[in-house]
Simulated scan of single mutants.
Amino acid sequence: MANIKFEYLYRDEGNYKTYGEVIFSNPNQLSVEYITQRIESNLIEGSWFEPNKWNIPRFSFHQHNPFGINDLLWYEFDCLSQCHETSNSNSIDDFLERIISTAE
């Protein structure tokens, strides 16, 4: 059974990028196209998300918000793919439910 790899990144003001990923189980074998559509329809301005609301791990340099209160620390959705790596998070169904409920 294929899992789902969610890849994301953070761009600093110099356009330097830090990449991350989360591997979700996919017990109902949802298609990448369906999942991508659900994610994209819940992004901020079509590209960004707040990692805390989506329960996506922040990068270590953001753990204590050293950039101050005005830095929103939005992360950018990069891509989604099927993989056979071991899941390190909840199911993709739980993730989609979470992002849809935080948008309401």
Rank of each mutant, 00 (worst) to 15 (best):
G68L: 02
N3Q: 14
I35S: 07
K53M: 11
N28S: 14
N42S: 04
E50R: 06
W74N: 10
F6I: 07
D78H: 12
H64K: 03
K53L: 15
A2D: 15
L73M: 14
Y16K: 14
S81Y: 08
N88I: 10
I39T: 08
K53Y: 06
T86M: 12
D12T: 01
L96A: 03
N55P: 00
Y19W: 12
N42F: 03
I100A: 05
T36D: 14
N65G: 02
S89D: 08
K17N: 08
R11S: 13
R58N: 10
I4D: 11
I39Q: 08
Y10C: 11
H84V: 10
T36R: 11
I4W: 09
D94V: 11
N26T: 08
Q63G: 07
F24V: 09
Q82W: 08
N42Y: 00
V32P: 03
H62V: 00
L80V: 05
P27A: 14
H64N: 06
P66L: 05
N70F: 00
S87C: 11
F77S: 04
N28E: 14
N15E: 15
S91L: 08
I100H: 06
F61Y: 11
D93H: 06
K53P: 00
D12H: 01
H84G: 12
R38N: 10
Y19L: 12
I69T: 01
H64W: 01
W54C: 04
G68T: 10
W48R: 13
S25M: 07
F95C: 04
L80N: 02
F49L: 07
S25I: 07
R11Q: 12
K53N: 12
N15Y: 14
N42W: 02
E7L: 00
L73I: 06
S41T: 13
N55A: 13
I35V: 15
R58D: 06
I99S: 03
D94Q: 09
E76H: 04
S60G: 05
I100V: 05
A103K: 14
Y8P: 01
A2P: 15
F95D: 07
F95E: 04
H62I: 00
N28M: 07
N65M: 02
F24P: 06
Q63F: 14
S91V: 07
G14E: 15
G14D: 15
G68M: 02
N65S: 04
D94T: 10
N65R: 02
I100N: 05
F24K: 09
N55V: 09
S41Q: 14
E40K: 15
G14S: 14
N52M: 05
M1Y: 13
Q82H: 13
